[in-house]
Amino acid sequence: MEKIQIISIIGSVLFLFFIVELIKRCLIKEAYSILWLFFGGLFLFISLWKDGVDWFAKIVGIYYPPAMLLLFLIIAVIFVLIQFSVVVSKQSDQIRKLAQEVALLKSQQTKENDH
């Protein structure tokens, strides 16, 4: 086993362990952890099955196999970022609605107090 393979296995395991710990402490919601766990698992799989990288790179037509790892990494990051954008958009919408509801309730309350 090459040095880099051992390092990447340890790295993947530590990454998965970190994510699991964050979910256990309720710092990440389960629904938002699916992508992280999926890509963490994928990286562990790739580090364990080194020939797979070469094999897959050949199929796709990538000359330099390690470039495929970078491709996976970038895809993973883009997916997670898109998920974040979706969540943030939804939340900003919800915050606006809540603020409006609170403001309307407040104005109703002051009106009732005046009468």
Partner: peptide, 14 residues
């Protein structure tokens, strides 16, 4: 199913 089983698993771990 994936989401709910994942959530059940982590609830059991906590």
């Amino acid at each position: 199913m994936i989401k709910v089983m994942l959530a059940m698993f982590f609830i059991a771990l906590r």
